[in-house]
Design a protein around this nucleic acid. Structure first.
Length: 259
DNA sequence: ATGGTAGGTTGCCTA
């Protein structure tokens, strides 16, 4: 019954004590990290390996960066999202582990709307859809776990009007996310909690957003049909966001039955 | 009331 978690840590080195405490308490079999904000060489391997995790890292200096932690051997890593050889941002790492193909995803933010960054976001999500087509051809369960930087629906944010002009909630971004669902991916959290409001994974550092619960749901676990058939539970662990030196995101998790 | 916070690297960019 593997548990798979996704956690945007906003710097692995700034978050290391919090992350280690959370891993020890929660012990998910597979963990996808985003925004590690360092190169592979600067990644704190040893303390995480000491907790019994194998590691695959795809990093870069200062920005972005993703990693996969697994209690199972990690095979067949793919660093970088296919479809644009010019793209040098470390936002996608895929591997096969514990009988599941897992991708750690950090989609572009895309603000401000109308900029080149917004165009890059939409192009990146389209590349993810194109690669998703190939992933769904495989005879393996697949989980896309990460920070998609998309608020799928109005119930996924405290104040839809406040986000109306933001790249995370623009119709183009929501359409790109829906295209993944229509392609065959299941939003694990929403599938099991269809009408729940206030299921947030991110609260801004500014303006007391966490205290006021002004959050958004932008971290998602997308399951291929073979993975969705095994979906047992999905939940958000709000605990880490409330601790001192917290990331602005909190982990989202799901449990799959043994295959 | 055009701010506020946090991270990295550097003297500013990203979220």
């Amino acid at each position: 019954m593997p548990t798979i978690a996704s956690f945007n840590v906003n710097s692995i080195n700034a978050r290391l004590p919090n992350l280690l405490a959370w891993l020890e308490a929660t012990r998910p079999e597979i963990v996808c990290l985003q925004e590690i904000k360092c190169t592979e060489g600067a990644f704190p391997r040893e303390p995480i390996e000491e907790l019994g995790y194998n590691l695959a890292v795809f990093g870069q200096k200062s920005y972005n960066g993703v990693a996969i932690l697994s209690r199972f051997p990690i095979e067949d890593p793919l660093r970088g999202l296919p479809g644009d050889p010019e793209d040098d941002q470390a936002r996608y790492l895929e591997a096969f582990t514990g009988g599941i193909r897992v991708a750690s995803i950090y989609a572009p933010n895309g603000n401000p709307v109308g900029s080149g960054r917004f165009a890059y976001k939409l192009a990146w999500l389209e590349r993810l859809r194109a690669h998703g087509e190939a992933l769904l051809e495989l005879d393996e369960p697949v989980v896309l776990a990460g920070d998609f930087n998309v608020i799928p629906e109005p119930i996924d944010c405290h104040d839809p009007a406040a986000w109306a002009e933001d790249a995370l909630f623009r119709p183009e971004s929501r359409r790109a996310f829906r295209a993944l669902l229509h392609q065959g991916w299941t939003d694990a959290y929403r599938a099991l909690h269809p009408d729940e409001r206030g299921a947030y994974t991110f609260w801004d550092y500014q303006g007391g957003a966490f205290r006021l619960d002004h959050g958004i749901r932008i971290d998602h676990l997308l399951l291929s049909p073979l993975a969705a058939d095994r979906l047992e539970e999905a939940w958000i662990d709000k605990g880490p966001r409330g601790r001192p030196k917290a990331s602005d995101h909190t982990p989202i998790l799901c449990r799959l039955r043994d295959g």
